[in-house]
Amino acid sequence: MAHSGINILFEGRNFTRLLGGLWISAKIAVIAIILGILLGIIFGALRTLHNPVLRFVLRIYLEFFRIVPTVVLLFLFYYILPKNFNMNLGAETVAILVFTLWVAAEMSDIVRGGLISVPPHQVEAGEAIGLNRLQLYYYVLLPQSIKLMIPATINLTSRVIKTTSLLLLISVMDVINIGQQIIEANSQHYQNGAFWVYGFIFILYFILCYPLSLWARHIERKELAENA
């Protein structure tokens, strides 16, 4: 072979274009995760209240976003709903919206699970010293359950980052989309360009996700040590 395939990454502006695509993917993931977690904490707390209507509605919401595949949600919000409701959002806005709603749904279940695992006598003790509902959450329930929520939340975060690879289906110029442009534009010169481009994208996703998984492991270890 006259030239090495890895050069495909450094031709012209290819390298900065790929990083630009990664920036779009990461930006959407980070915004959606932050908004989704905040929303999810509220929904999760609401789901521990004894209001059957509220619980039912939130349960439907959770099941909907958990059961329907993300691809379908993206298509629904990007192509199908605008037809009926005459509203038109940009691709990135739709991506952030769908991912936020999805994270909020999954997060509400994590938060609910964490909150109800706090032993009831803790709540009763809190009530006995005269804390109101909000204070109960703030001083008793959240501090004791947050440790239980963190590993699942980190897991959710890396799932969201990986799922950004679906965004090319709704015309978001994410890192995979740019990668495909580069592969096809160079298919005459670089027969195995796909290997190098996807290999590079793999490394980029790895750099984003691996620290999260290290952090999760660190927290688990710390917890084991504390409980021992």
Binding site: N177, I183, A185
Partner: peptide, 11 residues
């Protein structure tokens, strides 16, 4: 964006 020579992106 990926079908040369009809619609594609240069380096």
């Amino acid at each position: 964006g990926d079908l040369p020579p009809y619609g594609w992106v240069t380096k």
